[in-house]
Each structure stands twice: as C-alpha cells, then as structure tokens.
Design a binder for these strands. Sequence first.
DNA 1: CGGCTTTGACCCGCGC
DNA 2: GCGCGGGTCAAAGCCG
Length: 190
Amino acid sequence: MDFYFVNPHPNPNFGYSTHMNHHVPSSSSHEFVVSDYLMLDDIWIDQTRHDQESRSQSIESLEKVTFDDVNHELELNDATSNNNNIKYKNGSIKGKKGEVGPKIAFRTRSEIEIMDDGYKWRKYGKKSVKNNHNLRNYYKCSSVGCNVKKRVERDRDDSSYVITTYEGVHNHDIPFTSYCGQISFQHYDA
DNA sequence: CGGCTTTGACCCGCGC
DNA sequence: GCGCGGGTCAAAGCCG
C-alpha cells in the first residue's frame, strides 16, 4: 500500500517558523512542499488516490493524520532528511482527469483565509457548497506550466478554522518568501 | 496595460 | 435522461 509521510514541523507547537522551505524536485518520488509559515492544526491526506473511483470531494474523504503519526512514519522509514516536506511515495501523481497530484488538506485556526505559503496563487472560482454556508474559493498556482491547485474554505462546524486543500506538486521553486512576523522580506534565488 | 478578481455560465460525474 | 452538486471557464471589471 502506498503511504505518505510528513516531516515534522520545525516548531513543535506548529507555530510560525523563520526557516525557508526546502524544495528538492525528484523524479523518483514526489514531494509536496508545505510552507513553514502556516500554523497547521490538522492534516488530512488523500489515501484513495489509487482506488479507481472516489475522487475526493470533501475533507471527510481524506484520511486524517497527526504529527505523531508522521513522526512514527519517519522513524519507520529511517528518514534522514530535515526537509520540511510532505512526501508522496510509490505511484503516479496523475489521478483522474483534472487531478494533478496528491491531495493534502490542512485545518488551521486563522482569522484570515489567505495565508502566504510562499507561492503565488490566482483565484479562478468561488462556490457556495452544500452543508456549508461559507464560500469555497479555488486557486491555481500562477507559475506558468504549474497546475497545482488550492481550495480554501472555512470549517463548516467551526468557522474559526480555515481548511486549505492542496492538490498537485509544484514543478518549480518557491518564487519568494515573505514576511513572517517581524522577519524581513527575503528573495529566494533559484 | 497587464495581471488579478469577480461572477454567471458551463461542464462533468454521479445517483436516482 | 434528468437533476444536483462540485469544479472550471472566461468575459468583464478592477486596480496598481
């Protein structure tokens, strides 16, 4: 069975970090870079990728993992890297039509919905979804040739949480890093 | 003027 | 086949 793991967040309290992301493109495994800047309370990962059916429509269909799970997985796999990645192992990243890669969801407690994760996003849609009076926003990565998508909505049960779902793997480096608390702006030179 | 957001229309899969 | 719900398109408008 395929498995996924997430490197532990550099900050044990999942708070803001000043580290830059590390993105190491690889043809043998697919890495999904997660911003260090987000405060991640919960993570869901789509484990149904290789089942033929069930294109994930909601966060309920994603498997929730914890950072403890993740750390355990790391120990099992003798992970040596300190990169702050989510890795997606063994398998095609091409799912059904329109899907561009692994799907990972985060729930974060935040008053703002647009959290700077280092990438540049272009909004392309907004929908009201059933069972959630909050609107769901759709974003695409602005980088040419990069098909990574992102969905942002507020938790139906607790609107103080924002659920962000990433789909796909960036085929480019992070264009820049930005403010993180009082940390000054830095450019990322690829 | 270029890049972005907005917004209704459109598309598609799925269940009945 | 039809309706519903979710996802995407693309024209128009906005803004720096």
